[in-house]
C-alpha cells in the first residue's frame, strides 16, 4: 500500500499503485485485457492510420472497380475503384472523434445537471426531470434525425445531436447515484468535517458515482458510434466521398444483392468490432475506478 496522505495529489507511489491495479484488473479478467488491446488498436488506427494506409482513400480508379479482396487490396475495391482497406482504416479517426466528443459532452453536461438535481432536489429537480422526460419521450435515434435535419447536415451537428440524446442517460444515472448518497453517512460526516456543500458533492459524492458511470460511458461510446453511423447510413451528417463506416456500408448495400459483399462487410465489421470493444471495456473501466476492487 502507498503512504500518501490526502494532501498529496498523485505521488509516484500512487501512480505506481494505479498501474499495478490496472494490471491486476487485466489479469483478473482476460476479456477486459483483450478489449483494452483492441481499444489501443483503434486509437492507433485513428492516430496514425491516415499516414500508413497503402492507398489514398479518396483516389478513384474505374479500371479496378469492384474487385474482390486480393493481396493488393485485402478488403477489395469499391465501385469507384477506391481501396476499401485504406478507407476503413482512415474512417476510424472520424468515427472515434464523433463518438468520443459526443459522449464527453453529454458526460459533462449530464453529470452536472444530474448532480445538482440529485443533491438539491426540489424545483430544480422537478424542472430537470420534466425536460429529460421530454427528450426521452422521443425515440432517440428519431430525435437525432430530427435535430440533424433541422440544424443542417454536418459532422458538428451529428456530434451535437448524439450528445443531446445521450445527456438524459448521464443526468438520470448521476441523479440516482447522487441522491442515494445524499443522506449517506459519509456525506453527513463530510459536512461535519467542515466541507461546503459544493465540496461534499464534488469530492465525496460524485467520485463514488463513477464506477457505474464508467459502464454507461463505455456502452454509450459504442452506442454513439452506432448512432452516428446510422445517421450517415441514411444520408445525414457525413457526406461522400469522406470515408466513414456508416456511409461505406450504405454505399456497399446496393451491391450486396449482386454478390459484391466486401464493400459493405468490412466497414460494417469494423464498426461492429469497435462497438464490441467499447461494450466489453465497461466492466474493466468500472473495476479500475472502484477502489473496493483493490485487495
Amino acid at each position: 500500500m502507498t503512504d500518501q496522505t490526502s494532501t498529496a495529489p498523485a505521488t509516484p507511489a500512487a501512480r505506481h499503485a494505479m498501474a499495478a491495479h490496472m494490471l491486476y484488473v487485466c489479469r483478473e479478467n482476460p476479456v477486459t485485457a483483450a478489449s483494452f488491446v483492441m481499444f489501443a488498436f483503434f486509437i492507433l488506427s485513428a492516430l496514425i492510420g491516415p499516414y500508413v494506409v497503402p492507398y489514398d482513400p479518396l483516389a478513384t480508379n474505374s479500371a479496378i472497380a469492384l474487385q474482390a479482396p486480393s493481396l493488393a487490396h485485402p478488403f477489395g475495391t469499391d465501385n469507384l475503384g477506391r481501396d476499401v482497406f485504406s478507407r476503413v482504416i482512415v474512417a476510424t479517426r472520424l468515427d472515434l472523434i464523433i463518438s468520443v466528443l459526443a459522449v464527453a459532452i453529454s458526460f459533462v453536461i449530464g453529470s452536472i445537471l444530474g448532480a445538482i438535481s440529485g443533491y438539491r432536489g426540489g424545483w430544480i429537480d422537478s424542472v430537470l426531470n420534466r425536460v429529460l422526460d421530454t427528450i426521452m419521450a422521443f425515440p432517440l435515434f428519431v430525435l437525432a434525425m430530427g435535430i440533424v435535419a433541422a440544424m443542417g447536415n454536418s459532422v458538428t451537428n451529428i456530434i451535437i445531436a448524439t450528445a443531446i440524446i445521450n445527456i438524459p442517460f448521464y443526468a438520470r444515472l448521476v441523479r440516482a447515484e447522487v441522491s442515494i448518497r445524499r443522506e449517506a453517512g459519509f456525506t453527513l460526516a463530510a459536512k461535519l468535517a467542515g466541507n461546503s456543500d459544493l465540496r461534499v458533492l464534488a469530492l465525496h459524492i460524485f467520485p463514488n458515482s463513477l464506477p457505474p458511470m464508467m459502464v454507461q460511458v463505455s456502452l454509450n461510446l459504442g452506442w454513439a458510434i452506432l448512432n452516428a453511423a446510422g445517421l450517415s447510413f441514411i444520408g445525414l451528417g457525413v457526406k461522400p466521398p469522406t470515408p466513414e463506416w456508416g456511409i461505406m456500408v450504405a454505399e456497399g448495400a446496393n451491391y450486396i444483392i449482386s454478390g459484391e459483399w466486401w464493400m459493405a462487410l468490412f466497414p460494417g465489421l469494423w464498426l461492429l468490432l469497435a462497438v464490441f470493444t467499447f461494450n466489453l471495456m465497461g466492466d474493466g473501466l468500472r473495476d479500475i475506478v472502484d477502489p473496493r476492487r483493490r485487495t
Binding site: G230, F233, V249, G252, A253, S258, L265, L272, F276, N279
Partner: peptide, 28 residues
C-alpha cells in the same frame, strides 16, 4: 454483448447476403 454491438443496418445486409444471395431461400 454481441447483440448490443450489432449495427442493425449491417445485420440486415448480412442476412440478405446469406439468405437471399447465397442460399436463395429468402425473397428479394
Amino acid at each position: 454483448t454481441a447483440g448490443v454491438s450489432l449495427p442493425t443496418f449491417f445485420t440486415g445486409l448480412v442476412l440478405i447476403y446469406v439468405f437471399y444471395y447465397l442460399l436463395g431461400i429468402a425473397p428479394s
